[in-house]
Simulated assay, not measured.
Amino acid sequence: MKKTSKLKKLENSTQAYSNTERMPVLFLGHGSPMNGIEDNEFVQGFKKQGKQLSKPNAIIVVSAHWETKGTFVTAMQQPRTIHDFGGFPKALYEVQYPAPGNPKLAKELTHEVKPENTIGLDDQWGLDHGAWTVVKHLFPNADVPVIQLSINYTQKPEYHYQLAKQLKNLRDKGVLIIGSGNMVHNLRQVAWDKINEDYGYDWAIEADAKMKQWILNGDHKSLVSFQKQGKAFDLAIPTPEHYMPLLYTLGLKDDQDDILIFNNKPIGGSLTMTSVKFG
């Protein structure tokens, strides 16, 4: 059976690399999985950015919700929509984001990095909620190939920052790279009675403010060494998986990139939705 012309077009989209404009890099504070079906101010922020983006050849997402021993990239033709959460309304589990994968780009990624930074090909994962709940608002037609790059939990922060630097040239090939997590993310400290309010604990506001200051000043060293920044950061980042996607976007940034901070609010005391566009 012959493949449809649409699928062929998607598979061949990366062949036009040299004719595409340089893509920005996004860090998206993805927050609750409910952002996949709600139309709140944060979702509106995602949609606004989506309208300003040129259609990329492909999208790479580094999601807080795919941690692995070793680094992997999804390489299947049609990634499944993963509903990796519990206790939410039925409507959320019914959402499908049928974007195609891009095995060609996945294989290319394995050749982009230094030998000591091996990236393996994965055919099991798919698109977790850190990916599809935000990408669907950027490209609702699911007509851009999407692959995910995992977070190697055995490696230190500097490793992730340096690995991202090796992928910079993909921006010039029409590839949009997205880090999806939350800069401040402490679920144990959430004030559930204020989960829908613009409210942050003092330590959350302090850590978020310093992060934004360092982002704007280009102080990546302080951001990479977040574990040495004191009590506010210890509370803001009790585990690193939601913060690591930010380090990937910092590594992909160039000095000439403009910086835009949006969705700039805390919620529930111990979470921030702060999102950043570089470029």
Rank of each mutant, 00 (worst) to 15 (best):
G174C: 12
K156N: 08
K210F: 02
I119R: 01
V190E: 11
A209Y: 08
Y97F: 12
K212W: 02
K210H: 11
A142Y: 10
F88V: 07
G120W: 11
Y97H: 04
Y159M: 01
K212D: 06
V190S: 13
A91H: 09
G200K: 07
Q148S: 13
L163P: 07
P115N: 08
I119A: 00
D198I: 06
A106L: 12
F85H: 07
D143M: 04
A106S: 14
W192F: 03
Y93D: 09
N196F: 10
L187M: 15
V113T: 15
I147N: 13
W125N: 00
L105H: 00
P100Y: 13
N182S: 02
Q148A: 14
D123S: 15
V95L: 09
I177S: 05
H111Q: 14
S180F: 03
K114R: 12
N141S: 15
H129T: 04
R188E: 13
L149I: 06
L92Q: 03
K173R: 15
D143I: 02
V175M: 04
A209M: 11
T118E: 15
H129K: 07
N117W: 05
T154K: 13
L167K: 11
H185L: 09
P100G: 10
K212L: 07
G130R: 14
W192H: 03
G120A: 09
D198T: 07
I195G: 13
Q166F: 01
G87I: 02
Y161L: 09
K165T: 05
A164R: 08
L105M: 00
P98K: 05
H129G: 06
L105V: 00
I215N: 02
Y153N: 11
I177L: 14
K173C: 12
K168S: 03
Y97D: 12
A131D: 14
P89R: 03
K90N: 10
W214D: 15
T110E: 01
L176T: 13
L92Y: 04
A131R: 04
D128E: 09
L176K: 08
L149N: 05
Q189G: 03
Q213N: 13
W192M: 06
D208V: 07
Y159K: 02
K107C: 00
L176S: 08
Q96P: 09
H185P: 08
W214P: 04
P145I: 06
A209I: 04
E108W: 05
R188F: 06
L121F: 04
H129C: 11
L121C: 00
E206D: 12
G126Q: 14
D198N: 15
Y159A: 01
D202C: 04
A164T: 03
I215M: 01
V146E: 03
N186L: 06
D193C: 01
N102M: 03
I178R: 09
W132K: 02
K173L: 10
N117A: 06
N141E: 14
N102R: 02
K104L: 10
A209Q: 15
V146A: 00
P103T: 03
K210N: 10
P145G: 08
A106M: 11
L127N: 05
G120T: 08
E112D: 09
Q155E: 13
D143L: 01
P103G: 00
A207Q: 02
V144R: 08
K173G: 10
H160S: 06
V184I: 15
W132L: 03
H111D: 13
G126T: 07
